[in-house]
Simulated scan of single mutants.
Amino acid sequence: MKNREKEERIFIRIQKHRKESWKKLCSQKRISLSSLIIDSVESRIFDDERRKILAFIEKQDNIFVKIETNINQVAKIVNAQKFMNVEALKGFNEKLKTITELKEQQNKVFTKIYYLIAKNC
Rank of each mutant, 00 (worst) to 15 (best):
M1S: 08
M1Q: 01
K2Q: 06
K2D: 07
N3Y: 03
R4A: 04
R4T: 07
E5S: 13
E5T: 07
E7W: 00
E8R: 14
R9M: 03
R9A: 05
F11L: 11
F11K: 13
I12P: 04
I12L: 15
I12A: 07
I14S: 02
I14C: 10
Q15N: 04
H17N: 13
H17W: 05
H17M: 02
H17P: 02
H17I: 07
R18K: 11
R18A: 08
E20S: 03
S21V: 00
S21N: 08
W22Q: 08
L25E: 14
L25V: 08
L25M: 13
C26G: 07
C26R: 01
S27T: 09
S27V: 00
K29A: 11
R30T: 10
R30Q: 15
I31S: 06
S32R: 03
L33G: 01
S35M: 00
L36F: 04
I37R: 05
I37K: 03
I37D: 02
D39N: 15
S40K: 03
V41H: 04
E42Y: 10
E42C: 07
R44C: 10
I45F: 05
I45H: 04
F46C: 00
D47N: 10
D47L: 07
D47P: 07
D47H: 06
D47Q: 08
R50D: 00
R50H: 04
R51D: 14
K52E: 14
K52D: 13
K52G: 00
K52S: 12
I53G: 09
I57T: 08
K59E: 15
Q60V: 11
D61G: 08
F64P: 03
K66A: 09
K66S: 09
I67D: 01
E68S: 13
E68Y: 06
T69N: 15
Q73S: 13
Q73K: 11
A75C: 03
A75Y: 08
K76I: 06
N79L: 08
N79W: 09
A80F: 13
A80G: 06
A80K: 15
A80W: 08
Q81A: 11
K82H: 09
K82I: 01
M84R: 05
N85L: 01
V86Y: 11
V86Q: 12
E87V: 12
E87R: 14
E87K: 15
E87W: 05
E87Y: 12
A88S: 11
G91I: 06
N93A: 13
N93D: 12
E94V: 09
E94R: 13
E94M: 12
K95I: 11
K95T: 07
K95E: 12
K97I: 00
T98C: 00
I99C: 11
I99T: 13
I99H: 06
I99D: 04
T100W: 04
E101P: 00
E101L: 11
K103Q: 14
E104T: 07
E104F: 06
E104R: 12
Q105T: 05
Q105G: 02
Q105C: 02
N107K: 15
K108T: 10
K108E: 13
K108G: 02
V109A: 11
V109K: 14
V109G: 01
V109S: 10
V109N: 14
V109F: 15
V109R: 14
F110W: 12
T111R: 14
K112R: 15
I113P: 12
I113S: 09
Y114P: 00
Y114S: 09
L116V: 07
I117K: 05
I117G: 02
I117M: 15
A118Y: 10
A118L: 08
N120F: 01
N120V: 01
